[in-house]
Nucleic acid binder design. Structure first.
Lengths: 341, 341
DNA sequence: CTGTTAGCGCATTCAA
DNA sequence: TTGAATGCGCTAACAG
């Protein structure tokens, strides 16, 4: 691998001069610059980023910690963050950590070893206190999809409550009053907040949510959705609409309903949350709440970089809003007796 | 940021000793090791990877160049590669490059600057010659989803021809003889090879493929699939099955067919290629050829690392096979007149 | 078993 | 405008 010294020697200048032309800063004579550049091109010299990082004490890199890039939601998150780094000329390191508290911490650790100045962290296992401690140690650390009151200005999150309310109101506006809610077990914060939102919207409309209409599945995926529908059937619940915790579950719901000979949306309407690509692959196409994760990640990345450069504890808040995307899985409520018969 | 010197000073040993306990190699007295470890923990010392890479001349990192992580296929690829690095304790750098020949080259360039010893490259824009040149310069460079004869041992690819043949035979086995083929414009190598495979299988079965039954869409996504179906309709083509270039197109086909009142699979069967998550989100669930991209990426990553450490130009070949996944979008052929009427 | 010495490749003073 | 000198944090001989 050819180094700055090689270039300097061949171009018959000092390494300082080569360094200056490489980084395009500092004064260099026109002829000299041309000569050096020529040698750089001929030799195919590429500065060693590790060395640059070491001496300049800046790695110019952004780390992202997410459960798994192969999940479309997180892949999109990663992309959004990456796009934000283009103008800053930052590198992006992605760490997957979907197992435990410890793997998440390890991922952060690895990023620290890289001396990433900015980090966007989507934590699912660690608690607020641990995260707060981390935030104190790392100025450029930002949390995404998480709200921690003590460090609100370091959190980029979504208003899940209002989102759930809007989804619920949409169902209500279509005449639905018998609404089943499918959520996940081990209710995490998001699920809890969304459930609260559903309750609020229902209450405001004078509809009460019966406990047995809320079904928790063990996993938040398609199978979870199917499982929930089966349990609802076992309990003999009647409903004209289903509000699912996320798109994956919603699609599972549609599949299971279909398997039971119940048509969507003619017999039962279904609404999801996230607006993943699969929402549009499903037939009927899924009506859902659009989660602007790409924009949020983009914002979070910029915030992290900004914070790392200038630790002014801004007091801004970073709350995003989901919005309804109407497609084909929700229609006017059918008369419930008709279906139940 | 605390350094190895800080630890050495506090622990009252030399930096070499600290280095030894950090890397868990070399002989260190038990008591001494314990003392140093204690200081490390107390101070929260994390070795600077940039410095390690600089001095040891090994960055222990694997670079991945793909069009875009947010696309599920590539997200899965990235994950597969990442999993392969765990045992080697390598870091992973992901570069998105979906614009042009140049952005791909820039991505590689960035990886070189990082001194990644291993690189898995999914190139879509560059030609074989450019890639060969690159391969000569970078011992640990491996191409995925690409076959370049001159450097076959550096390519991890899929037998698209046989895959297409199998898909075609599946359709034939279900009694289909009027098969429409939906591919993409600017036919890339994969599309061409798959088309060849379809032709071969059809010919072997004594069926001839009419040119007008092959429809190219401008994009290889859902909209492309829909577009192709519309064009087929305009031309008045009759068919009982559609073989699509990939899952996205296949799902577009199903949606468009559905919009035209044609049922899948009762009236027309549809088969895809890739077996993405969306295949299972679709209703009916899509029958498709499973593309073992995760395993391939895993393999490619290991190969890249191996090659980087020991440039023995192995003569092995690295060809993977797709396999059929039967779901619900393919059924026995309907009598074509019945549908056409 | 432990410490000393000498760089890795580069950016950054400071002189010239 | 250019070059010489210094050191970033760490590992790798080499002594002891």
């Amino acid at each position: 691998m050819i180094t700055i010294k090689d270039v300097a020697r061949v171009a018959e200048v000092s390494t300082s001069t080569v360094s200056r032309v490489v980084r395009k800063q500092g004064k260099v004579g026109k002829a000299c610059r041309a000569k050096v550049q020529k040698v750089i091109d001929e030799l195919g010299y590429r500065p060693n980023i590790n060395a640059q990082a070491l001496v300049s004490k800046k790695s110019n890199s952004l780390g992202i910690v997410i459960p798994k890039v192969s999940m479309p939601f997180f892949g999109t998150l990663a992309c959004g963050a990456e796009e934000a780094t283009k103008e800053n000329n930052y590198r992006v390191l992605i760490s997957n950590a979907d197992e435990s508290e410890q793997t998440e911490l390890d991922a952060i650790d690895s990023l620290i070893q890289h001396r990433c100045e900015a980090i966007v962290f989507h934590s699912v296992y660690n608690n607020d206190d641990t995260l707060c401690e981390l935030a104190e140690k790392i100025p450029g650390l930002v949390f995404i999809n998480r709200f921690i009151p003590k460090i609100a200005h370091r959190c980029v999150w979504l208003d899940n409550n209002l989102g759930a309310q809007e989804a619920t109101r949409h169902l209500i506006s279509k005449g639905h009053t018998d609404i089943a809610v499918i959520t996940r077990e081990n209710i995490n914060t998001d699920a809890q907040v969304r459930l609260d939102g559903v309750r609020t919207a229902l209450t405001n409309a004078g509809i009460k949510l019966i406990d047995s209409m809320v079904e928790s599945a063990s996993t938040a995926d398609m199978e979870g959705g199917r499982e929930a529908v089966r349990n609802l059937l076992k309990k003999g619940m009647k409903y004209t609409a289903v509000l699912a915790f996320n798109d994956n579950m919603a699609i599972g719901v549609i599949h299971e309903l279909n398997a039971q000979g119940i048509r969507v949306p003619e017999d039962v309407s279904v609404i999801g949350f996230d607006d993943l690509l699969i929402a549009v692959a499903c037939l009927p196409e899924l009506s859902t709440m659009h989660y602007p994760i790409r924009e949020m990640a983009n914002y979070a990345a910029k915030l992290a970089i900004e914070l790392s450069e200038n630790s002014s504890s801004s007091v801004r808040t970073h709350l995003f809003m989901p919005h309804l995307v109407e497609r084909d899985s929700v229609s006017e409520a059918a008369v419930i007796e008709a279906r139940a018969s």
